[in-house]
Each structure stands twice: as C-alpha cells, then as structure tokens.
C-alpha cells in the first residue's frame, strides 16, 4: 500500500487528483514498458521527479490537462488525460519529446505518479457528442484504490506527502529544469555565489526559485497559443 496524497484543485473540486511519490524505484523499465504497451491498468502519468520544480508546477499542468479534457469543445492534443498532463508540462509542442524529458526513463529512480479521475464516457454516443469531450468522472478511482495498485506494481520506497506537497519539489534538478525551459543561465551562477555567503543565501535561493516557478507556469499556460 503506497501513500497517496489527494489534491483538490480549486474550481475542479469534483475531480480530485491522486499523487504518489516514490524514491529508489528499481522497476522503471517495467513501468515504462507497460506505458508503451498502453496497458489500461497502468493508466497513470509517471513523471521523473527531477523535472518537477514544485507542487505548483505539477498542479498547474494537471489543471490544464483536466481543463482541456473537460471543456466543452475539447481542445486535447493527445489521446488520454495522462498523456495530456505529460505534454502540458513540456515547453514545446512535441509529445514524444515531452515523454523523454518529463516521463520516466529506464534509469529513473524517483518517480511521481499522478492519477486523474477520468475515464472515457460510457454513455451513449449521442450524449458524448452533446458534451463534446467523451470523458467523464470515474467514480471507481479513490485514493485507496490508487494506493493499493501502485503499492503492488511500483518497486520503490513510498514517500508520504504533507498537506502542501512540498516533497514533490525536493528531488528536483534545478539546472536541468532551467535548461529545458530555457531560463537564463547567468542567474544560476549568481545564486551559487550568494549561497556561499550563508544566512542570506538560502532566502535568496528561495526567491529565485519562486521567480523561476512563475516564469515556468507562464510558459506552460501559454503553450500552443
């Protein structure tokens, strides 16, 4: 049984999102092969934790993925809500590249698994066309069911998340993220220097991370415009 944190996004309260964090994952190749085989039991967004800067970073992409799949004329760019999530994280419009950068690779050790409570509409085709999206809430998905299944299939250490989910950003490789989103490298060097001068350094680093997060959120929100 893996520990799962359920996030309730404002304005999409009806669609709680389940997130689990694993460290020292040893069977990443297996998880990845299940994704490639499109095994319906493995319908998750498995993300590389080193690419997630902060909880807001993840939740922003999650919100956008939910929004694209639930808004009336759907504007989805990918097949499933989970692939949309991975795609929304990426700064460019290449789905394969998004998976390479943000999805798990064979040697990924720290994994974030996200489960969106959506499933293809089972209602008649007429209903689906009137709604125009073909996806609806899957009532069967609960934190327990997700935790149980993930606990069985992921070989790794489950990390419990606190209320704010700050642990999600703890395994981030800031320089890698900076590179992917093409954020100025000059600031990084400055940050390192000020980090040596203790006391103030930590505060400044936090400030810099906030700035970075803000630009990243803007970038992914405007993608595809």
């Amino acid at each position: 049984m893996a520990s799962v944190k359920t996030f309730t996004l404002p304005h999409y309260e009806a669609y709680p999102v389940h997130v689990a964090l694993f460290t020292d994952v040893t069977n990443a190749p297996f998880l990845r092969s299940q994704l490639l085989d499109a095994n319906p039991d493995f319908d998750y967004a498995f993300l590389d934790a080193s690419m997630i800067l902060s909880p807001s970073h993840l939740l922003s992409a999650t919100f956008l993925a939910l929004h694209t799949f639930l808004s009336a004329p759907t504007r989805k760019k990918t097949r499933t809500p989970h692939s949309e999530l991975v795609f929304r994280l990426s700064p460019n419009n290449n789905i394969g590249e998004s998976y390479k950068k943000f999805g798990i690779a064979d040697n990924t050790a720290n994994v974030i698994a996200v489960k969106l409570p959506l499933c293809p509409s089972t209602s008649t085709s007429q209903d689906a066309s009137s709604e125009g999206n073909g996806y609806e809430k899957d009532e069967a998905i609960t934190a327990e069911s997700v935790g149980k299944h993930l606990g069985d299939v992921v070989k790794g250490t489950s990390v419990g998340l606190r209320e704010d989910g700050d642990e999600l950003g703890a395994w981030c490789d800031v320089e890698k993220v900076r590179k992917v989103y093409k954020l100025g490298g000059g600031e990084g060097q400055k940050g390192k220097k000020s980090g040596v001068a203790n006391g103030h350094g930590e505060e400044k680093e936090g400030e810099e991370k906030k700035e970075m997060e803000s630009v990243i959120l803007g970038t992914i929100a405007l993608k595809g415009s």
Binding site: L217, G218, T219, A221, S225
Partner: peptide, 28 residues
C-alpha cells in the same frame, strides 16, 4: 488576451517585476 499574457511572461523572464501568469484560456 494573448498579447497581454505573452508580454507579461516575456518581461517576467527578464526580471521586470510584474504579476506572473498562472493560467490562460484564450478561447474562453
């Protein structure tokens, strides 16, 4: 809407103090 949002993100990237963009839907 996009002119406003793009401009905000662009100048924020360069370090001007402006409010950050958290989400946008130009169709909505």
């Amino acid at each position: 809407l996009l002119a406003e949002a793009r401009s905000l993100v662009r100048v924020k990237r360069e370090g001007v103090h402006v409010p950050g963009v958290l989400g946008a839907d130009w169709e909505g």
